[in-house]
Amino acid sequence: MKTFKLNPYRIGYRTMKTAFGMAIAVMIAKQLGVVNFSSAAILVVLCVKNTKMKSMHAAWSRFASCLIGLLLASFIFEMLDYNPVVLGLVVLFFIPLTVVIGTQEGVITACVIILHCFNSKGITLDFILNEILLIIVGLSIALVLNLYMPNRQNELENFKTTIEQEFQVILSEFSEALKYVNIHLDYKIVDQALLTIEKAKSVAFMDVENHFVRNENSYYHYFNMRAKQALLLHRMVDLINDVSRTDTLHRELSDLIHEMSLNVSSYDHTAVRLHDLYAIQLAMKDHELPVNFETLHSRASAFQLLRELEQYLLIKSKFGSLKK
């Protein structure tokens, strides 16, 4: 028999804002004498988003859709009749119209207003003003609540630290794999770092959308830089597995990657590591030439590995430092 497992849940700031906003919106709408005052809570639920930008966009879409739905429904119901067939006709015209003007996000909210029109059995100026006031109350409460967003600085810094630690582990394992023939690398260790980076980029992007006067985030650029490096690390896995441990070059590569693992978070040692890398490339001409296919394949993998490591270091050197 299949068992169901309850998912753990923690009440977050968005949940608390939604609950508080619904209560406040209903109380204010009721105090203002708005008919159907409880519908103000629906607007709050739909407009409290996880970023300020999304909240503003949601509020605008719903305001425009509700206003269009109100005017369209008032006109059609008065011209034809207040019956279910006409209700369907209103929605049939209304939804394509919102798609054309780009406010389809507010369709559900506007349908509530359209149903208010349908239930009224008669549109008056007071009814229209009542619905507009209802819309304004709900949207205003949601926007005011969304003025507060938590500071994600610590979260972003924690992601940065975690990613650097994961990179350090990856490079350390690369170095060890180049020393010992019994170590065979797989992609899992790099895949975990890529997953962490994607989560970090998502948080950094939300931080951008919480600032109206800033359209970029230095942490986002930093995580994007690490994503490019992680893709290079992913390609290095097979190259390291193909480097023969009988070739003396493997020791030099191991030492270089070991030094890189010690300075993942530093920007001062990138130039030094590039110098060491170029020294290895220049010294390759003094190594014995491959004598068979196996040694040729190993030398080619080692050469390609140096090219990938060079790109890895150049990406970091072009980024510079993280501006907080």
Rank of each mutant, 00 (worst) to 15 (best):
D207E: 15
V272K: 04
N36T: 07
L72S: 09
V90N: 12
Q304C: 11
T124E: 15
V90H: 04
L178H: 09
A177D: 07
C66M: 03
I132H: 11
I128V: 14
C111G: 10
H184I: 15
Y82F: 15
M16D: 00
A279W: 04
V86M: 10
N130S: 07
Y180G: 01
F20V: 15
H221C: 03
V34R: 06
F303I: 12
V100Q: 08
Y219C: 05
Q153F: 15
G122N: 10
E173M: 15
L92Y: 10
I101D: 00
D268G: 01
L67Y: 13
P290M: 13
L129N: 04
V45N: 02
T295H: 05
Y220N: 06
G88H: 07
D186L: 09
K52I: 06
T18P: 02
L194N: 05
S172I: 13
C47R: 00
Y219A: 06
V100P: 01
V90D: 11
V86S: 03
I76D: 09
I114Y: 10
D238Y: 13
I315P: 02
L253N: 04
T161V: 13
A25R: 07
N146H: 06
V34P: 08
L125V: 12
Q311T: 04
L195C: 04
H234M: 13
L70P: 01
V237N: 13
E216I: 04
L282Y: 07
R299G: 03
C111W: 07
S120W: 07
G320E: 01
D186E: 08
E164W: 07
V181F: 05
I101W: 04
Q168C: 13
T162R: 10
I132V: 15
F223W: 01
I68Y: 14
K199D: 10
F20Q: 00
Q304G: 05
T109A: 15
D81L: 11
S175A: 15
L147E: 14
I11H: 07
P150I: 08
D191G: 12
L145P: 01
I113D: 03
M53C: 03
K5M: 09
M149L: 08
